[in-house]
């Protein structure tokens, strides 16, 4: 019967990986465009137009990864989905309001009468900031096991700030890649500032995570388990140093390597994410519910998995097509 082993084992695991993958893609992709929004106040009007142009063709598809992630959690781990989202009711609401504000501001700022453009620019900034902060807050509460105590709350406020800085960092590296001249130089400055926020954020989360439970603590510090984790901090440190020295030399003649910081920043996110995933496995609600207990019926997961095998590569294919069509420096957005 079980040709590939027990489906009650490998199906939840597969879906946990798929969900993790979508969350990771989401935080990288929407991370950079939320970050661009957070950086808005530092730019002048012409630069704002340019920054918007750099994310215009992408933001909608980027947000769809959030829908996919939440959808996978909804279908594969329904109990966890209910528990997590009801516990995070208010921050989810704030994030949604933020996403609504920035999504529509995008359109309104160029279509509404010119006198309102500043207003919509501000809405765009406020929405991006609100979404980033609430996502960071949710991350913090999640790490702390979704229990509301003052200590946990304070920690979540901290992660809210760090994630926002992290987003603006990756946003800045995106602007470095997509623009040139004055704005690009400015973005290098933003990135230099942002990288420290990111380092502090990863540091704070790494310091706090093992304290959440003895189980995670043992995973981190008990020999030989600790060896599995060791490469992550080492690689991260190398990446940070590399990024820092690279930013010192930016922008380089002939715009060489303007895309490197973005790629390195992405790698840094991936490492941080892997560390978290490794620590929390096999729990989907930290220390309360494992992926195996939360999973839906195998026959339903199966029917989704079959579709996924065909559809996911297609999605990735045409996403690459879109990024290829709009490669190079951002130019004014026009409908013709």
């Amino acid at each position: 019967m079980y040709t590939f082993g027990d489906p009650a084992q490998w199906l939840p695991f597969t879906f946990a990986i798929l969900m993790g993958l979508s969350i990771l893609i989401y935080v990288v992709l929407d991370g950079f465009d939320l970050g661009v929004g957070v950086l808005f106040p530092f730019a002048d009007d012409a630069e704002k137009d340019r920054m918007i142009a750099s994310i215009g063709p992408f933001w909608d598809a980027n947000e769809t990864w959030l829908v996919l992630a939440i959808g996978i959690m909804l279908v594969a781990f329904p109990t966890a989905h209910g528990q997590i989202l009801t516990a995070l009711y208010l921050p989810v609401f704030l994030m949604l309001i933020g996403l609504i504000m920035r999504g529509v501001a995008f359109e309104f700022r160029v279509k509404a009468p010119a006198a309102y453009k500043d207003l919509w620019n501000n809405v765009f900034f406020a929405g991006s900031l609100l979404s980033s902060l609430s996502q960071g807050f949710m991350l913090g509460m999640y790490i702390m096991g979704l229990d509301y105590t003052w200590g946990h709350f304070a920690f979540a406020v901290l992660t809210a700030i760090f994630l926002t800085v992290g987003y603006s960092f990756i946003g800045a590296t995106w602007v470095i890649y997509k623009t040139d001249e004055h704005l690009q130089r400015k973005a290098v400055g933003w990135a230099k500032g942002g990288i420290w926020g990111l380092v502090l954020g990863i540091g704070a989360i790494s310091a706090a995570t093992p304290l959440v439970s003895t189980r995670i603590f043992e995973k981190w510090f008990d020999f030989p388990q600790a060896l599995y984790l060791a490469p992550l901090p080492i690689l991260s440190a190398i990446l940070v140093v590399w990024l820092w020295s690279m930013l010192q030399k930016m922008p380089r003649a002939g715009d060489r390597g303007s895309w490197h910081p973005f790629v390195l920043a992405t790698l840094l996110w991936v490492l941080a994410f892997l560390g978290m995933a490794y620590s929390f496995y096999p729990y989907v609600v930290p220390e309360k519910l494992t992926i195996y207990d939360a999973a839906s019926a195998p026959e339903s997961l199966f029917i989704i998995l079959i579709g996924t095998c065909f559809v996911l590569p297609t999605i990735i294919g045409y996403t690459i097509l879109a990024y290829t069509v709009f490669r190079g420096k951002a130019t004014e957005l026009r409908y013709d």
């Binding site: 063709p57 909608d60 598809a61 069509v325």
Partner: peptide
């Protein structure tokens, strides 16, 4: 979502 970008700005 993906093809919207190409439809609008491409």
């Amino acid at each position: 979502a993906v093809f919207l970008g190409i439809m609008l700005f491409g």
